[in-house]
């Protein structure tokens, strides 16, 4: 399934807000390193990866973590992997 960039961004935002309930996702800039901004620890991040993977159908490996640093990166990653 192809994911377009807008959908990808929405998925990433949604996954973050589900992994970190109460996080103000709307205040995140596309290039903010959201892990730091939201003080996500490795368990939070794993939860995010889990949710995002499930939503997008894209398998995300440990090695892919550095590519999920910002909203823009994460969306780009999903778009690239889904094609």
């Amino acid at each position: 399934m192809n994911i377009n960039r807008t959908d990808a961004l929405d998925m990433v935002r949604d996954a973050i807000s589900r992994a970190v309930p109460g996080a103000d996702v709307s205040a995140l800039e596309p290039d903010d390193p959201f892990r730091d901004v939201l003080e996500m620890d490795s368990l939070d991040f794993l939860g995010f990866v889990e949710i995002l993977s499930e939503m997008s159908g894209v398998r995300i490996e440990d090695e892919d973590a550095p590519r999920l640093a910002t909203l823009a990166d994460s969306a780009g990653f999903l778009v690239a992997r889904s094609t």
Partner: peptide
């Protein structure tokens, strides 16, 4: 982790 579904990964 490579062998496991994402929900069963280790940290």
């Amino acid at each position: 982790n490579r062998r496991s579904p994402v929900g069963e990964r280790l940290l």
